[in-house]
C-alpha cells in the first residue's frame, strides 16, 4: 500500500476506469497487487484446504452426518457419547500409553546417538547419513509391512530372543507386545531429533567442559550439569514436536493393526478409531467431534509442556539467579 502511494504515476497507468475510489485503486495497483498475487497460492490453499474444511468439520461435529444425507443438528451429543464409548476410551488409553513410551524413548535414543556422533572421528558423515536414513523411509507402508513380518512368529526378532531364552512368540500377534513394536518403529526413525540435537550439542562452548574437567567433574556430572542445561531449549523443541507427532501416528499402526487395532484392540490408536468411525461406519459427525477433541487434547498437553518448560529450559542470556 505505502509503496503504491510513492509511485502515483504507475497507479494512474493501471487504474481501471469506473467507480473505483482512490483507496481501492491503490490496493489493486502495482506492487501491492503483485504481492497479493504471489501470496495467492498460499491464501487459496489455506482458505480452501485448511480453514474451509476445519470450519466445516467444526460444524459437522455438532451434527449427525452419514455422508449421504444432509447433516442434522444434534448439539453436543457426539461429544457426550464419547465418554460412554468403550472403544473411544480404549483409543485414548492406547494413544496415551504410546505417547508416554515412544516420546521419551525416542528422544533418549536420539540424544545418545547425537552425542556419539558429536566427536571428531573418521567416517562421521557416513554414520550421520546412516542414522538419518530410517527417518526417510520409516513412515512408509512398505516398512510397516516388513516391521510386522520381523515381529511375527519364528521371524528374526522371535528367534533372536529365543537364543537368549526369552519366549514371547510373535509380537504382532500378542496384545501385550504389539504396542511396544510400534514404539520401537518410532524410535528407529530418530533421524530428525538427532540432527537437531547434534546442532544443539555443537553450540555448547568447549570451555565449560574444560573448566569442569579441571574441577574434577566426571562424565555423568558433565552431562547432567553442562550438556543437558545447555541444550534444554533444543530438547524442549524436540519434545514438543515429537509429542505432537506421536499423537498423530497412523500409517504404521493401520498397516500393523488394521481398522480394528489388532491384536485385540491393543493398537487402536485415536486416529485409527477416528478414521474407522468416519470412513468405515460413515459416522462423519462423530468422527469430526473426535478430531476436535484430539485438537483440544494435544493443545492441552502442549500448554502443559510450556508451563513446565519455565522450570527447566534455559535460554542463553538468562542469568542463573532468575531461577
Amino acid at each position: 500500500m505505502s509503496r503504491a502511494t510513492i509511485a502515483p504515476d504507475r497507479r494512474a497507468e493501471v487504474a481501471p476506469a469506473g467507480r473505483t475510489g482512490p483507496r481501492e485503486r491503490a490496493r489493486l495497483s502495482g506492487d501491492g497487487l503483485a504481492g497479493y498475487l504471489f501470496l495467492s497460492p498460499w491464501i487459496i490453499g489455506i482458505v480452501l484446504l485448511t480453514l474451509g474444511p476445519m470450519v466445516t468439520s467444526l460444524y459437522l461435529s455438532f451434527t449427525d452426518y452419514d455422508l449421504f444425507n444432509a447433516p442434522t443438528w444434534i448439539g453436543l451429543e457426539n461429544y457426550q457419547r464419547m465418554f460412554t464409548d468403550a472403544r473411544w476410551l480404549r483409543s485414548v488409553q492406547v494413544t496415551a500409553i504410546y505417547v508416554a513410551l515412544a516420546v521419551p524413548i525416542k528422544l533418549a535414543a536420539a540424544l545418545a546417538v547425537a552425542m556419539l556422533l558429536n566427536s571428531k572421528r573418521a567416517g562421521q558423515g557416513f554414520y550421520r547419513a546412516a542414522f538419518y536414513g530410517p527417518s526417510l523411509i520409516g513412515g512408509s507402508v512398505g516398512v510397516a509391512i516388513v516391521w510386522k513380518m520381523m515381529f511375527s512368529d519364528d521371524s528374526v526378532v522371535d528367534q533372536v530372543l529365543l537364543k537368549f531364552g526369552i519366549d514371547t512368540g510373535g509380537w504382532a500377534g500378542n496384545p501385550d507386545f504389539s504396542l511396544m513394536m510400534l514404539v520401537l518403529l518410532a524410535t528407529w526413525q530418530l533421524g530428525a531429533p538427532m540432527v537437531i540435537f547434534l546442532a544443539g550439542l555443537k553450540q555448547v562452548p568447549r570451555e565449560l567442559y574444560e573448566a569442569a574437567e579441571v574441577d574434577g567433574a566426571g562424565r555423568a556430572r558433565r552431562f547432567w550439569s553442562i550438556t543437558l542445561p545447555m541444550i534444554s531449549p533444543v530438547l524442549f523443541f524436540n519434545l514438543l514436536l515429537e509429542t505432537i507427532n506421536a499423537f498423530q501416528v497412523f500409517t504404521s499402526a493401520y498397516v500393523v493393526g488394521g481398522p480394528n487395532g489388532q491384536p485385540a484392540g491393543s493398537t487402536l490408536f485415536y486416529t485409527i478409531y477416528l478414521f474407522d468411525r468416519g470412513f468405515g461406519d460413515y459416522r462423519m459427525g462423530y468422527a469430526s467431534a473426535m478430531a476436535w477433541m484430539l485438537l483440544l487434547g494435544v493443545g492441552l498437553v502442549t500448554v502443559f509442556l510450556f508451563r513446565t518448560a519455565r522450570g527447566w529450559v534455559f535460554y542463553s542470556g538468562d542469568s542463573g539467579d532468575k531461577r
Binding site: S152, G169, G170, G173, N174
Partner: peptide, 9 residues
Amino acid sequence: PIEKGVQIK
C-alpha cells in the same frame, strides 16, 4: 490360535 491368525493376515 488367534494370535497366529492375526499375524498371517
